[in-house]
């Protein structure tokens, strides 16, 4: 079964809030070699005007991929994860994410195209704070090989 093209244009309901934990943020920063003090030291982050330790620029993927699972783990969407390659990723930060943020995410399936046995699936996650303020937009494109590609 191939990728279900009818999923293009879908918008999912907002997720349950994801709380950005300080220790998780620090551990993610260590995992990507982000040793800037603003990721680790609350006082250093506050000195730069942030309320708490700041997330590295790609941390939002942790939140986005949970939202994307609504599509990827839906058998009717037809995305065989063993045939998936990550093609593109982009983060737009409307304001820096920091520890303590409660993030609600809305997943959009922006496009699904298929050509020569390769499906390109582009999703967009809109991350917002509990008060509705926009935090980040995460756009991700997956390439899914067909069964005989």
């Amino acid at each position: 079964m191939g990728v279900n093209l009818e999923y293009a244009g879908r918008e999912y309901p907002p997720t349950a809030p994801y709380v950005v934990g300080r220790e998780h943020l620090r551990d993610f920063a260590r995992a990507v070699g982000a040793d800037h003090p603003a990721h680790h030291d609350v006082e250093a982050a506050r000195a730069l005007g942030h309320p708490d330790v700041v997330a590295p620029p790609t941390f939002a993927v942790v939140i986005a991929q949970r939202a994307e699972a609504q599509l990827i783990e839906d058998p009717a969407a037809g995305i065989d994860f063993s045939r998936v390659v990550h093609a593109e990723e982009r983060f737009t930060h409307h304001r820096p994410l920091h520890a303590g943020d409660e993030v609600v995410t809305v997943l959009h399936v922006d496009s699904i195209t298929e050509r020569a046995g390769l499906a390109m699936v582009t999703t967009r996650c809109e991350l917002a704070a509990a008060d509705g303020a926009r935090l980040a937009t995460v756009v991700s494109t997956l390439a899914v090989r067909g069964a005989d590609a």
Partner: peptide, 10 residues
């Protein structure tokens, strides 16, 4: 300042 990065794509 990590907060200065407003957009990043690859």
């Amino acid at each position: 300042d990590p907060g200065a990065i407003v957009d990043y794509g690859v």
